[in-house]
């Protein structure tokens, strides 16, 4: 499996996390797992990358975190996208789409 350099990962992390949270609220472990499984393990966020980013999003008011008690009685801090985060996501998506299209036109890569 090809590995992705940390700089590309860092840049794509915001988009990946905000996109996931736009679908439904998730806690940190679920975010990490879903990104890993949906990308076939190409994108993988360790705790030291994921949580500083989530806390930054929270400070910027892009996400709101709330403690929730799960069915098994455990407490997890779930993150949900705020209206401000949703606003942030649209231009971020457009930016990455433009980037991939530009890259595609140069390299001739095609989507699988």
């Amino acid at each position: 499996m090809p590995s992705v350099s940390s700089q590309i990962k860092r840049g794509s992390a915001e988009l990946a996390v905000l996109t996931l949270l736009a679908e439904h609220p998730l806690h940190g472990y679920e975010i990490a797992k879903q990104i890993e499984s949906q990308t076939g393990g190409v994108l993988r966020f360790d705790m030291a990358s994921l949580y500083p980013m989530l806390y930054r999003f929270e400070r910027k008011n892009w996400v709101k975190a709330e403690w929730q008690t799960l069915l098994n009685g455990r407490r997890r801090r779930c993150y949900r996208l705020t209206a401000s985060g949703r606003k942030q996501l649209a231009p971020l998506r457009a930016e990455w789409r433009a980037f991939f299209q530009a890259l595609q036109s140069v390299t001739g890569f095609q989507n699988a």
Binding site: G28, Y29, Y51, R74
Partner: peptide, 10 residues
């Protein structure tokens, strides 16, 4: 507590 929850799930 949040990190502990993450490790517990892992």
């Amino acid at each position: 507590e949040e990190l502990a929850g993450h490790l517990e799930d892992s």
